[in-house]
Design a protein around this nucleic acid. Structure first.
Ligand SMILES: [Zn+2]
Ligand SMILES: [Zn+2]
Ligand SMILES: [Zn+2]
Ligand SMILES: [Zn+2]
Lengths: 152, 152
DNA sequence: CGACACCTGATAGACTGTTACATTATTCGG
DNA sequence: CCGAATAATGTAACAGTCTATCAGGTGTCG
């Protein structure tokens, strides 16, 4: 069963929040679980939909508040080009958003490239620009989809 | 007067569209002019607002259709993190979207870094990913704003 | 003129996200 | 434990961004 993997993920998040003195409440944990379980970028209203399957009727602010918290704690990222959210693949330390997004199957691959970070910082500094955060989203075809296409 | 600069920009765009066999109609030209004249990222509804100052009452689809055309022809870019549009600073050849965005004054600086392009392509290829387009938006403080702040 | 492609106008609606205020839950000092 | 302060949640209404759809106009070509 794969549920234990999800639980490990959530427990790790819980432990991190405990350390930081912030509260991963049941609701926030549920939203984080839905995002992680989706395995793909998922929109706020789709999350809302899945929360409603438990009988409750949360409204948009509920999910947006949870998303705001999870973003602050670097447990999820927002994909600006998709208006969707994904679980962070290495939430133990803050970092910028760097993604490969397959336009065919929707899979995303989170990068964490110090080289890319450095290239961007250098570029910025040559312009006298002081960077604070960055968003990198590469759209294209993932390995699996490319293979399937060329083989087919 | 600065109007001649705007006209040169628009005439250049016109020439490029003529070459490509596409039509930079009066309406598209007007939208492109408004975006260029703004000098900063401008939202679709702000464009709409300015178009209405001529007495006409265009509706959202009007401006979105023009924006779609201008994006296709690489005459403008969309800033995904701002939901806003800017004129391309070197529209003579297609290229990916790379921007430094000052969060204080709103100025944007369009990069065109082959090095960044290469770094991204290399990163993608090590994952078997075939990139098609990318969006890079760095948020921070521009040189002027940083200077004003440190001096003040 | 008629047929066709393209552009435009206009209504309505979908999707994404926010404001404002009332209510409930949790924490903490006494 | 009690009560005040703080944090989190519930609820309704709304704002911002973008799209679907249908109808009408313009221009070219034969
Ligand atoms: Zn991450
Ligand atoms: Zn794929
Ligand atoms: Zn450009
Ligand atoms: Zn600035």
């Amino acid at each position: 069963m794969r549920k234990s993997e999800l639980n490990r993920f959530l427990d790790q998040a819980q432990a991190m929040c405990d350390e930081r003195g912030v509260r991963l409440t049941a609701q926030r944990r549920e939203v984080l679980g839905i995002i992680h379980a989706a395995g793909q970028p998922i929109g706020a209203y789709e999350i809302l939909e899945r929360m409603r399957q438990g009988g409750r009727k949360p409204a948009p602010p509920t999910v947006y508040r949870a998303l705001e918290f999870l973003l602050q704690e670097h447990l999820i990222h927002k994909l600006e080009t998709l208006h969707a959210y994904v679980a962070c693949s290495h939430p133990d330390h803050p970092h910028a958003s760097q993604f490969l997004i397959c336009s065919q199957c929707g899979e995303v691959d989170e990068l964490e490239s110090a080289g890319l970070d450095g290239t961007l910082s250098d570029l910025a500094r040559t312009r006298g620009f002081r960077p604070q955060s960055h968003t990198v989203e590469v759209s294209g075809t993932c390995a699996e989809c490319a293979q399937g296409k060329s083989a087919g």
